[in-house]
Simulated scan of single mutants.
Amino acid sequence: MSTSIDAKLALNRKSGGRVVAAMVIWVVLLFVPFWLPMIGGYTDLATRALIYAIAASGLNLLLGYTGGLSFGHAAYFGLGAYGAGLCLIHIAPSVPLAILGGTVLGGIAGILVGPMAMKRKGIYFAMITIAFGQMFYFIAVRWNSLTGGEDGLTGFSRVPLHIGGEAIKLGPERFYYLVLVLFALVMAIIWQILRSPLGHSFVAVRENTTRLRFLGVAVDKQIWVAFAISTFIVALAGTLNALLTGFASPDNLGWQLSGSFVVICVLGGMRSFWGPFLGAVIFIVAQDYLSSVTQNWMSFIGLIFVLAVLFFPQGLLGFIKGRGR
């Protein structure tokens, strides 16, 4: 009886600690434009970190919780960026429409690619995702009349956001808060998915596919659903990145960026809810600082990744949790 009570108390303390940690994170994020410049940072850096955190969180739904290693998710990030830019140029100067159009374009591409990719397992799954990613990359490079080819898509920028008859200019601070709201929405959606039977089925696919098949579960369908949801989230991040930079490049679809998303997930902790966020913050800050110091900054990023894999196999957040226990 006492053992049961102690276990419940320990569980309550653990749950309370998570709530406090989450509240601290949100408070820190809420006041970023006020305290970040005091330590030599700038608001667009924090915005970029949140955008990459959204993309990595979407990938982590597939990689960390379902067990599918994708090296082609930058394709949907890039499609989101191109979709947002093309909406602003050819349809209407509307930020919500650009975000919606880019997200839908990348998500639909993920839905179509999913059935073909989910037939492969392990390294073959990773290889086919690279193949599809490179296909979208070469389409963007060759379709000069629409995408601008190797020069990328330009000629668009953030336009005022019309709310209640008022035009609100999206300067760096206001755009940061727009991205923060969307980041909160994405995290809430992922949290609800992971707590639902669908989320539990994703984890079951990762842990024991054979047993699920014997139970009559359509494993391929579960992987497809996880793949599709993750591509919608990554495409949303791509639209925000295009609005941040005012530019969509074929590099946004390349496998190198897909590798960066994987590094972010592994660095922060693949099977942790906040792991991709922590990994994105470390990656973006390190990239910004190292690129200003040396042209070989990618070598140092690679070294950080190797050290993380060797000494923190569960990611930095997993290591912190382990030390806490």
Score class of each variant (00 low, 15 high):
A7D: 07
K8C: 07
L9K: 14
R13I: 04
R13V: 05
K14Q: 13
V19R: 15
A21N: 10
I25H: 00
W26L: 15
V27I: 15
L30M: 13
P33Y: 07
P37C: 04
I39T: 10
G40Y: 08
D44C: 01
T47G: 05
A49M: 13
L50P: 04
S57A: 13
N60M: 09
G67S: 07
F77G: 06
F77Y: 12
G78Q: 04
A81M: 02
Y82C: 02
G83S: 11
C87S: 13
C87A: 14
A92N: 10
P93W: 07
S94Y: 01
P96C: 13
P96L: 07
L100N: 08
G102C: 06
V104K: 11
G106K: 07
G107Q: 09
I108Y: 04
M118D: 04
I123R: 03
I123T: 11
I130G: 02
A131D: 06
A131I: 10
M135K: 02
R142T: 08
E150A: 10
D151C: 01
G152H: 01
G155T: 05
F156T: 03
S157H: 14
R158C: 02
R158I: 04
R158W: 01
V159M: 05
I168T: 00
G171I: 06
F175Q: 00
F175I: 06
Y177N: 03
Y177V: 00
Y177W: 12
V179K: 00
V179M: 04
V181Y: 14
L185H: 12
M187H: 08
M187S: 10
A188F: 14
I189T: 12
W191K: 15
Q192T: 10
I193T: 11
L194Y: 11
L194T: 09
F202D: 06
F202I: 03
R206K: 15
R206M: 10
R206V: 09
T210I: 14
T210D: 15
L215G: 08
V219H: 01
K221D: 10
Q222C: 08
W224S: 13
V225W: 09
S230Q: 08
T231A: 11
A235H: 03
A237K: 06
T245L: 14
T245I: 11
T245M: 11
N252E: 08
L253G: 01
Q256F: 13
S260Y: 09
V266D: 00
L267Y: 06
L267V: 05
S272H: 13
P276D: 09
L278S: 03
V285P: 01
Q287Y: 11
Y289D: 09
S291Y: 03
V293D: 06
W297V: 05
M298E: 10
F300H: 00
I304P: 02
V306H: 09
L307M: 14
A308F: 02
V309E: 08
V309P: 01
V309H: 06
F311E: 07
F311G: 07
F311C: 11
F312K: 07
G315Q: 05
L317Q: 02
G318W: 01
R323I: 14
